[in-house]
Simulated scan of single mutants.
Amino acid sequence: MSFLAEVIPPPGFFDDDLAELGFVMNASRLWTYRPQWQEQIFDVLGSIVREHGLTVRQRCILVAPQPSATPAAPLPGAPNWPEPPTRTWPPPSSTATTTP
C-alpha cells in the first residue's frame, strides 16, 4: 500500500538491483516516477567527476558533510518543528588567552 500511484517501470529498470542485491531498493522504485531525472542527475555528476578528476574517496569527502553545510529548509507539507537551540559561547577568559 502506498500513497503514490503505481507506476509501471521501463523494461529492465530493476535488473541491476535484482542481480546485485536480490531485491528492489525503495530508492529505485522512487526513480520510476521520473526515470529521465535519474539519467540527467547521474550525467551531471559524472561530468563533474570527469572534469575535475575526482576519486571515489574525494567524492565521499565532498558529499558526506553536505547535509550539515546546507541550511535546513523546510519541506512543503512538513510539520513546523521548533528551531534547534542556538549555541552561545562564553567570552574568552584571561587564562585561555595567555600562554606560558
Rank of each mutant, 00 (worst) to 15 (best):
D43W: 04
R34T: 06
P35K: 02
P92K: 05
V49Q: 07
R59G: 12
W37F: 09
C60V: 05
E83K: 15
V7G: 01
I48W: 06
N80S: 15
D17A: 03
P90M: 06
Q40L: 13
S28T: 14
P91M: 11
D15L: 00
R87Y: 13
G77H: 10
E6V: 02
P84A: 09
I48G: 02
P79G: 06
W37I: 07
I8W: 00
L62F: 08
T95L: 07
L75Y: 10
I61S: 09
P71V: 11
V7K: 07
S94P: 06
S47G: 06
A72K: 15
P71R: 15
P84W: 02
Q58C: 03
T55W: 01
I48S: 02
G53E: 04
E6H: 11
P74I: 02
I61N: 07
P79L: 15
T98K: 14
A27W: 08
D43R: 14
R29M: 07
A27G: 04
A64S: 11
P76I: 09
M1E: 08
L4M: 07
W89C: 14
Y33G: 02
P65W: 05
S2W: 02
P9E: 03
R87K: 12
T88I: 15
P67F: 02
V44C: 05
L54F: 14
G77K: 09
I61R: 09
F3P: 00
T55P: 03
S68H: 07
I8G: 00
Q66M: 15
T97D: 07
P91T: 14
R87S: 12
R50Q: 14
W89P: 03
M25Q: 11
D17R: 04
W37E: 09
T32G: 03
W37S: 07
L18H: 00
A19N: 01
C60Q: 13
Q58F: 02
L54H: 05
E6S: 10
S47P: 00
W37L: 13
E20Q: 12
L62D: 02
A73I: 10
A96E: 15
T32I: 02
A27S: 13
L4S: 08
F23C: 04
P11F: 00
W31E: 01
T86Y: 11
P92E: 07
P74F: 01
I48D: 00
W89N: 05
F42T: 12
T86L: 15
L75F: 12
E51C: 13
V24E: 05
M1P: 06
A5W: 01
I48F: 01
A96T: 07
L45H: 08
P85V: 12
R50P: 01
Q36C: 06
T55L: 11
L62Y: 07
R59A: 09
Y33C: 02
A73Y: 13
L30N: 12
N26A: 12
E39K: 14
P91F: 12
W89M: 15
F3V: 12
F23E: 10
Q58M: 02
G22L: 07
D15K: 10
V56C: 10
V49Y: 01
I48E: 08
F3A: 03
S94C: 11
A19R: 13
G53L: 00
T32F: 00
H52E: 09
A5F: 04
S93F: 00
Q38G: 04
G46Q: 02
S68T: 11
F42I: 12
W81P: 04
V56S: 08
I61L: 14
V44P: 01
A5K: 04
S68N: 14
E39A: 14
S47C: 01
P100H: 05
P65V: 00
A27E: 11
G46W: 10
T95H: 10
